[in-house]
Design a binder for these strands. Structure first.
Lengths: 254, 254
DNA sequence: GCACGTTAGCGTACGGCGTACGCTAATGGC
DNA sequence: GCCATTAGCGTACGCCGTACGCTAACGTGC
């Protein structure tokens, strides 16, 4: 089973773009654009109007060029999205800034920063990343997390699994929140209005007797804000990781 | 700030579809289709060809009807996706089947079942659910989880937050895996081939000295399978939840 | 049995999308 | 000054979701 050569070439091109070997043979007319400007503009468009507004035509118009000119810099929209995703993945933490903190504090910082990125650029979660390969900026985040977990007594696979766990949780939590926002924000409904519309259906469901545990919940059950819920989950998760680390260090209680 | 009436009506229609008050005033010609058949067919299309193949035209063709006929049953594609998502969310566990198990076993069962759903129907994770409201089947899953956490000493908001945490983790983990599969499967590359293509770029990055912690990882660091990684994360997460539950029950060690 | 209001099916059309193809013109190296 | 190279991009193709309005089937009231 050999791989189709052109597909391999596509991935190579993505990698070359991400890692940016900016070598160019200076023949022909001077480029009007740069890859950087394209990615920056595309991010601005997506930030402003959501992923629905992000089209090659729109980005080109914003840059004042013809649509097809973009394809001199980027193989296609998928690859552009991969570049955009890597670009905004900068959590703005350097190794020095975290040197004095323990693993838990560092993971907390990373989780918060990553969560914030998703809130600021929700289109990452809506994008269909069929061209995702590891870029330099996301790799930096990975590096930071892996470094924080050095000397914790974990094996290397475990350290990576912990990082994966954290990324998975943050992504999932942000995704839930984003879809909620997206659904309720359609047409500018507020939190209260949205639930007011849903209420009759849910009330009927509760009274049907098929959801006794849900029906038995008190009113304040839904009082957690998204932030509080995220913090709660993160705390439980780090507790669980801490248990493993402590057991490896030979202690019994945290 | 009043809500736009038509938007409220849209959500009402979604709810009516989800909760299926199948009342129909039998005037005019008899319907050739049912909502059920449409949803079933749409799921089959998405399962077979990914979300890219899922179009109203395609579903209609599969059913042997005109495209616009679908719109007599469903307001639009967004709502169809909401229906598909709820339909597929059945984890096949009844309250009786879990009655004798403790909270941890039940949450484990739910997590596994949910993860499996995402693997079987990856289009859920690719869909842009801008019309997501709570449907009867997803509510069943919620009910099950909330019931499992009764008598654990947690407050109601905490119980919901735990359920949220679990759902968030499973979704995030499945999403990471799905995007990896999606990228590498393009053109039928195997795991090994995919990494073989990425290797030079990553090797260069490692040798650059900018990622010392990553570079210091042993070779077997990447030996975890997706399953093992998921199990590891789930275990840590449940450990963390257990810690809180035990502290509430007044014990000290698990 | 018939007229009529209601409703299902759906043909047509519109405005979007991503991008393949190939032309024109600018450019630097020889 | 020639020429291979390459940036810009106009045009076109085949998709998409869905608005609109026509036709015909049907249940109901007479």
């Amino acid at each position: 089973m050999t791989a189709p050569q052109d597909e391999v070439e596509q991935i190579r091109r993505s990698l070359r773009l991400l890692w940016g070997s900016g070598d160019r043979r200076p023949r022909g007319p001077r480029p009007k654009l740069t890859l950087d400007r394209i990615v920056t503009t595309a991010i601005a468009v997506a930030d402003a109007g959501g992923i629905a507004e992000l089209s090659m035509r729109r980005v080109a118009a914003e840059l004042g060029v013809g649509t097809m000119s973009l394809y001199r810099y980027v193989p296609g929209k998928d690859e552009l999205l991969a570049l955009m995703t890597d670009r905004v993945s900068d959590i703005g933490l350097t190794p020095d800034q975290v040197a004095s903190r323990d693993w838990r504090q560092v993971l907390e910082l990373i989780a918060h920063a990553t969560y914030r990125i998703y809130l600021d650029h929700p289109w990452i979660l809506q994008a269909n990343l069929t061209r995702q390969v590891l870029g330099p900026i996301r790799l930096t985040r990975l590096e930071l997390a892996v470094a924080a977990l050095a000397d914790c007594g974990l094996t290397d696979p475990e350290r990576l699994a912990v990082v994966d766990l954290l990324e998975g949780y943050v992504t999932g939590a942000a995704r839930q929140r984003m879809f909620y926002d997206l659904t309720s924000a359609r047409g500018g409904l507020t939190h209260e209005e949205f639930w007011a519309v849903q209420y009759p259906a849910l009330a009927a469901a509760m009274e049907s007797g098929r959801y006794p545990a849900m029906a038995a919940l008190s009113e304040e059950a839904f009082s957690f804000t998204w932030e509080r819920s995220f913090e709660f989950g993160l705390a439980r998760l780090l507790d669980g990781i801490g248990l493993l680390i402590n057991s490896r260090r030979g202690r019994i209680s945290p």
